[in-house]
Amino acid sequence: MSSQTILLVEDDPQLRLLIARALKEHGYDVLTASTGAEMQVLLENGRVDLVVLDIMLPGKNGIEILRRLRTESDLPVIFISARGDEADRVIGLELGADDYLPKPFGTRELIARIAAVLRRHGNNASQPHEKRDEAVFCNWHLSFSRRELRSPSGALVDLTTAEFDLLSVFLQEPQRAISRERLIELSRSRIGDASDRSVDVLVSRLRRKLSHEGKEAPIVTVRGIGYMFRAGVSLA
């Protein structure tokens, strides 16, 4: 049985009680909150392993809460929402949500997704890039602790959370062909809708941002497999 702690942020009392009971039955310790303010207090006063966060909350909504959280922490977050808008899903995932589950949903599915995110996050915690502070490639500098990328000229390059996570995967697997499926698996955050197409779009955006002074980005397509980061990488 798991002793991990799940923080459930949901303003519907009946749904909050239903989900909390199901999580406890599966061995999780559960904290509950109905607003972002309550969530913040709980985060400051105890250990939390994952947050289940409703988008539609009184006061600050889930997207605003996640945006602030990602400036402070890489804590795993699963969005839940009665709204099925693709825009909400994409914004949430790009801000760094690890998964998105539209309402209504079964508690068994939520629990399965929680277990998958915790496994993925736990596995990635031991990846080399989590133990290193900086990667250097082609005079580009990436700081893992500050989550910043600087161009050869020293300019700060704006990356979304999904772009940063994908680049981090490439930097820990340089000069090695990686399938799209493996890129999704290794990335800390869910990539778009976790499809081949969403990976292709994200790689295309990274290529544009990594192009500098007429030089092409060091991400190449490997036909029939996926992609390769062809530059040498120094981790420090």
Rank of each mutant, 00 (worst) to 15 (best):
G106V: 10
G106Y: 12
G106A: 15
G106W: 04
G106Q: 14
T107E: 12
T107D: 13
R108Q: 15
R108E: 15
R108M: 14
R108K: 15
E109A: 10
E109W: 07
E109D: 13
E109Q: 14
L110E: 07
L110W: 03
L110M: 10
I111A: 04
I111W: 01
I111T: 06
A112M: 08
A112F: 06
A112I: 06
R113Y: 00
R113V: 06
R113I: 02
R113A: 14
R113H: 06
I114Y: 06
I114R: 04
I114S: 02
I114M: 02
A115R: 14
A116C: 04
A116D: 11
A116K: 12
V117G: 02
V117A: 03
V117Q: 00
L118Y: 05
L118S: 01
L118V: 03
R119G: 04
R119T: 12
R119F: 04
R119N: 11
R119Q: 13
R120H: 05
R120C: 01
R120F: 01
R120E: 02
H121N: 09
H121T: 15
H121W: 11
H121I: 02
H121K: 07
H121M: 02
H121S: 09
H121A: 12
G122M: 00
G122S: 12
G122K: 05
G122V: 05
G122L: 05
G122N: 11
G122H: 11
G122C: 03
N123I: 12
N123G: 10
N124H: 12
N124A: 14
N124W: 09
N124T: 00
A125M: 01
S126I: 03
S126W: 09
S126G: 11
S126R: 12
S126M: 11
Q127F: 15
Q127G: 01
Q127W: 11
P128W: 05
P128A: 08
P128N: 02
H129M: 13
H129C: 08
H129S: 11
E130K: 14
E130G: 04
K131H: 09
K131G: 04
K131Y: 04
K131S: 09
K131I: 00
K131C: 06
K131V: 00
R132S: 10
R132A: 14
R132P: 00
R132Y: 12
D133V: 14
D133C: 10
D133A: 14
D133R: 15
D133T: 13
E134H: 09
A135M: 12
A135I: 06
A135L: 13
V136E: 09
V136A: 10
V136C: 09
V136D: 02
C138D: 12
C138H: 10
N139V: 01
N139D: 12
N139H: 13
N139W: 01
